[in-house]
């Protein structure tokens, strides 16, 4: 049985995530303890709110080093929503902040003034995923291309390396990174635990693919 740990640092709707994992047949535990995280087979980093707040909370629970040590073991880490955003090098939400730096790039505003069109922020909608075919390192989920997932965010990722972008969704005429991946690090901008059956399926696929 795989040991799945959801990092509990006071940031995110972890109850729903735990329930979603249970629905697809995985028990999980909520923890902020070094030993639990280091011995896990699959770690999920949730998160809602502001970039800085999440980083401060990780520091408060002394989790930054733990997560880096865990990742160094080449075991899978899945960041969700803000948990995905803080995987990047830098965040520009309310000032400039240093992220976990697992994926090169930055997190910044969804460009509000693109082509002089009024863009609603936050992006709150079910949006369709489009997989980028040449990035073949994430095969399992491609059957989910074109399906809808629940997004809620005001900032978006700008990955530096094209190869790290696995799927995007379209908001107005902006391509918003929806899935990013670099080695054993995976990030979802949408909420799989709030995306109905599609969300449950992508969670299951992702955990299975990590051990395929």
């Amino acid at each position: 049985m795989k040991k799945i740990v959801i990092i509990n640092y006071g940031c995110g709707n972890i109850l729903s995530l735990k329930r979603a994992l249970k629905e697809i047949g995985y028990e999980s535990s909520l923890s902020n303890k070094n030993d639990d995280i280091m011995s896990a087979d699959f770690v999920i980093l949730p998160g809602v709110g502001a970039f800085q707040n999440a980083i401060e909370l990780l520091n408060k629970y002394k989790l930054t080093k733990t997560i880096k040590d865990y990742v160094a073991l080449k075991k899978p880490l899945l960041g969700i929503c803000l948990g995905m955003q803080i995987l990047f090098s830098k965040g520009y939400e309310m000032g400039s902040h240093t992220g976990l730096n697992f994926i090169e790039g930055k997190v910044d505003k969804i460009d509000k003034h693109l082509k002089n069109k009024k863009i609603k922020i936050p992006h709150i909608n079910w949006s369709n995923l489009f997989f980028i075919n040449k990035n073949s390192k994430f095969n399992f989920n491609k059957n989910l291309s074109g399906r809808s997932f629940y997004f809620v965010h005001s900032y978006m990722a700008y990955p530096k390396n094209e190869i790290d972008l696995i799927a995007y969704c379209r908001y107005y005429d902006i391509d918003v990174p929806a899935i990013v991946k670099s080695d054993n690090i995976i990030g979802f901008q949408f909420h799989p635990e709030k995306s109905g059956k599609n969300g449950l399926e992508i969670l299951k696929n992702t955990i299975e693919e990590a051990y395929a």
């Binding site: 109850l15 629905e23 629940y150 809620v152």
Partner: peptide, 11 residues
């Protein structure tokens, strides 16, 4: 809400 969370996976 707690009950709803058990098996409803939308916001």
């Amino acid at each position: 809400i707690k009950l709803a969370c058990e098996d409803i996976f939308i916001p």
